[in-house]
Design a protein around this nucleic acid. Structure first.
Length: 293
DNA sequence: ATATGGCCCTGGTTGC
DNA sequence: TGCAACCAGGGCCATA
């Protein structure tokens, strides 16, 4: 499941591949689930725009788009080109991609074999193609016209840049287990099941501990553990569990460094105690009963 | 207001 | 061996 490190890796890869390219033609599949904005509105909105930048916001991928170039948008071909590219670098729309559980964003050539469950194909002026593939259809696509709505903002703080004070205030006084709070995107945006379990292990904190009962120094330890885990995972290109690959179809390697996630019953890498698996907030949760208190 | 549980989906795994 | 039941889970929604 793509979380912060996987989304960061994909966004960087897509950015490198398609920055400056222009969307010439858009094809969308017939399943309605992936579309927050209707496919027709998204397709009309996307065509003719240049991709200025691609970046991660929480678990979302934001594609920043220029105003449409009337020459390539297919409509308004007869208008004059006064102004030309003057506004080409102003962000006037965003395409938002959330990968859900099994979503992939791939840069391919148009003749690459079409994978099952391909829901979106964006033909680019360079001849490349940007594809959204998602078997389980938990992913979502959205188009934001910035002349009508504000730009995308992640619902919570970014785990990599949040200060110790803000981090502590997010969890202060809450009566929910710390693991559930880590998964709450309105508090921190980007942490999912893998990195919640891994950061709690590295911080030595049991997933069921209530937020309000954690000391300030435990919270600061958790923040630093989280940053360490996320940065390490980004360096290794993310965790390839399920079918995660980056924009070029390359797998990550952080799954080889997991200490607890999906290691239920196996010996703790630090103390050999068997890793426990419980269900918390509806999610499989893994921890070492010896190392985590 | 805040926390919990059901639901959407399909592919891989398990069990008979 | 083959098929069916089960499980995984991010985010959204209804409910307590």
């Amino acid at each position: 499941m793509p979380e912060l490190p996987e989304v960061e890796t994909i966004a960087r890869g897509v950015h490198e591949c398609v920055r400056g390219d222009r969307i010439v033609e858009v094809w969308f599949g017939s399943h309605p689930q992936p579309f927050k904005t209707t496919p027709l509105r998204q397709a009309r909105g996307l065509e003719g725009r240049a991709i200025l930048a691609v970046y991660r916001a929480g678990k979302h991928i934001v594609c920043e788009l220029s105003a449409p170039d009337e020459r390539t948008s297919g409509r308004g071909k007869h208008r004059n080109q006064r102004g030309g590219d003057a506004a080409a670098h102003d962000v006037s729309a965003q395409w938002i991609v959330h990968l859900g559980m099994t979503g992939r964003l791939l840069v391919t050539t148009p003749d690459a074999p079409l994978e099952p469950h391909t829901h979106a194909r964006l033909n680019l002026a360079s001849g490349r193609e940007l594809r959204f593939v998602d078997p389980r259809r938990f992913g979502r696509l959205d188009f934001l016209d910035l002349s009508r709505v504000p730009g995308f903002r992640a619902p919570g703080a970014d785990p990599l840049t949040v200060s110790g004070d803000v981090f502590a205030s997010l969890f202060h006084g809450r009566k929910t287990p710390i693991k559930a709070a880590l998964l709450n995107q309105k508090l921190l945006s980007g942490v999912g099941n893998i990195y919640a379990d891994e950061s709690l292990f590295r911080a030595g904190i049991r997933p069921r501990r209530l937020c309000g009962r954690l000391t300030r120094s435990e919270l600061e330890g958790l923040r630093l553990a989280l940053i360490e885990v996320l940065r390490h995972a980004i360096r290794l290109g993310g965790s390839s569990v399920s079918d995660y690959v980056d924009a070029n179809g390359v797998r990550g390697f952080f799954q080889l460094e997991h200490c607890v996630y999906q290691r239920g019953g196996l010996p703790c890498l630090r103390c050999q105690t068997p890793i426990k698996r419980i269900v918390l907030a509806g999610r499989g949760t893994h921890y070492c009963p010896q190392c985590q208190r």
